[in-house]
Simulated assay, not measured.
Amino acid sequence: MAATADHRRARILEVVHELGTVRVADLAARLGMPTVTVRRDVAALAEAGRLRRSHGSVALPEPGTDTPANATGAVGGAGAAALLGSTGQTATGVPDGRGRVIGMLVPAIGSYSDEIIDGARSAATAAGARLVLGISPAGAGDGRGQVARMLESGVDGLLLTPNGLPDGPADGSDWLGGLPVPAVLVERRAAPGSAAAGLDAVGSDHRHGVLLALRHLAGLGHRSVLLAARQDTWTAHEVRAGYADAVRLLGLEPRPALDLHRSGGPPVPTDPERLADRLALAVEEGVRAALVHGDRDAIQLPPLLRARGLRVPEDLALVSYDDAFAALTTPPLTAVAPPRRAVGAVALDLLLRRLGPADLPAHHIGLLPTLAVRSSCGALPGQD
């Protein structure tokens, strides 16, 4: 039978009384409890003033230190107690992150990651927490080296976007299950059945985003939509899976995807001339609509197609999957917009709640993309 929270916390206090200052990871090993559970209980005990935390370690409060029960100062005493609710929130509903340091691992700096980082940074600032960044570029491993360095620096929790693909080996993410601090996967999910499958995860529901695009094109009368996408990124895999699902659901004619993947080495731009040639050939075969992942490739296509005697949208309705720059071309591109900033903000919010005293179940949160309708698909903005 699982121990109650009160029983677990009583055992934690016993060990800390016995040992004095002790690392949380060592405390968890001594008690035979998951590190995540011990960290959550330690957070609750620290909030109650019964323990003191510092850089991954825990100790008894210094003699004479005020606790929430007897403090009277405006900060850390009655004033702070008035701001915090039972879930560790401020009066505005923002999780309390004062003094927290959050490590964030991203695979690259670019338009997609930048917006996620910005969302997380804004949420951290609002909560009083500090965000530190680690970068694990494609081809540089899964990022555990960067994570180890952030853990050594004393971060309280982690937002993680490790390199890897959905169809990777089930044990490829097992290292994530042994982290000594709470972690939230961002735009990733661990393989089902892996040691990390129970981690919190927040990401865009890219399959829903593709469905929005294809349903819109089907509503305009298209019965065949061509997908052009990479296959060497997590998002591209989800877009491809979403295409297969949407084609089946909407009764569209399935077509093989145009593969924009370049194997080996870091990502490089697609050859736009070659992509335009392949789309022109598809038009000759009767295709009149295409979804291109993402903006970097899609925005180059209208002038290249014009050079081949094809007009957008008259000869080919064009939709981009990204919407970072899609509105800036001629004609402006209809585009699926993943909620990048919201993903970062929600992930940071969830991690701070995980660090608080509340005993939360694991969350797998999928945020829905939106479709910005512009003239490149032959419909008027706002037309569904």
Rank of each mutant, 00 (worst) to 15 (best):
A28M: 01
G143L: 00
S224V: 14
L250G: 01
V75A: 10
G178L: 10
A191R: 09
M1T: 11
L355A: 05
R340A: 14
A43H: 03
S54T: 14
I135H: 00
R274L: 13
G164Y: 10
R278D: 14
A148D: 15
A347V: 03
R9E: 15
S173P: 07
E152T: 15
I117T: 06
R274C: 08
D6G: 13
G85C: 09
Q383F: 08
S111G: 11
V155M: 01
A25N: 09
T235N: 09
S122H: 12
A124H: 02
L351K: 11
D41N: 11
L355V: 01
D259Q: 03
V94D: 09
E18N: 12
P266I: 09
A129K: 05
R144W: 12
D96Q: 07
T161L: 07
L105K: 02
R288C: 00
R8T: 13
P169L: 12
P68S: 11
H216S: 01
D295V: 01
R23E: 15
L211E: 10
H206A: 07
V147T: 05
E47G: 08
P95D: 12
R30H: 12
A241K: 10
P63K: 11
I12M: 04
F325M: 12
G145H: 02
L316Q: 03
R149L: 15
V336N: 01
P302A: 09
L227S: 12
V287L: 05
T270K: 04
G79H: 02
V58S: 05
G309K: 04
L348K: 02
